[in-house]
């Protein structure tokens, strides 16, 4: 009996994603263009241990009178995880590692969350980490993948294959060259979120500050 409690309790967090549902979109089959293969893309994106740069996020939701913009800096470490340092419109520091999530607003004390305590919280976080890292292997588990373009200008279109994602997104599109430059998430009702990355560089080591940030 306790096992069924576990089952029921588990699927609850997913339910929030699915409140009103629509039919899932048709699945695309994986295609490989002549220009670049998935494997090559994976290799390209994995080539650098560290990626640093600026980001700009624009959330274009129909319920807002104007798009919601935010910007800041990011540090992506293959080993450590992601540091998302929003500066506009208000300062927030988000640190996401394999099993921890820390959130710090301005000068308040950081809030720390453990993946072990509630892995479902990390469902989206890890999805994003896979997107940022262009982890095509992991993404293929949940999406139908279509890759087009060449090594200098590729587009990776992801179509969700399994719930709960099918009930949230129609598509997720990644664009880039040596780096991931653009990420666009389109929701079922047409609302979208675009994140673009600029000024990307590949330092060989983390700074002292960055190291301490990741050491949660």
């Amino acid at each position: 009996m306790t096992l069924t409690r576990l089952l029921t309790a588990l699927v609850i967090p997913l339910a929030l994603l699915t409140a009103p549902t629509f039919a899932a979109t048709a699945a695309n089959t994986e295609t490989e263009q002549a220009g670049i293969t998935l494997q090559q893309l994976q290799q390209t994106l994995a080539a650098h241990e560290l990626v640093k740069g600026d980001f700009e996020q624009v959330r274009n939701l129909s319920m807002f009178s104007q798009p919601l913009s935010s910007s800041g800096h990011f540090v992506l470490s293959r080993q450590q995880g992601l540091w998302w340092q929003q500066t506009q419109p208000f300062p927030v520091s988000l640190v996401l590692t394999k099993n921890k999530l820390s959130q710090q607003f301005g000068t308040e004390a950081p809030q720390l969350m453990n993946a072990d305590e509630n892995p479902m919280v990390f469902y989206f976080s890890h999805l994003f980490l896979s997107l940022f890292q262009g982890d095509t292997q992991k993404l293929q588990e949940q999406f139908d993948v279509a890759l087009s373009g060449d090594a200098d200008n590729w587009t990776l279109a992801l179509t969700p294959r399994t719930p709960p994602l099918t009930q949230v997104f129609t598509s997720i599109v990644l664009k880039g060259d040596e780096n991931l430059d653009k990420l666009e998430l389109t929701e079922l009702r047409g609302d979208s979120t675009r994140i673009s990355f600029t000024d990307q560089s590949h330092p060989s080591t983390l700074t002292q500050e960055e190291q301490s940030v990741f050491a949660l």
Binding site: A19, S70, P89, L94, Q103, F128, E187
Partner: peptide
């Protein structure tokens, strides 16, 4: 604003 929170327009 948090991209990791998974807040959709629908929600």
């Amino acid at each position: 604003y948090n991209p990791f929170s998974g807040v959709t327009a629908n929600e």
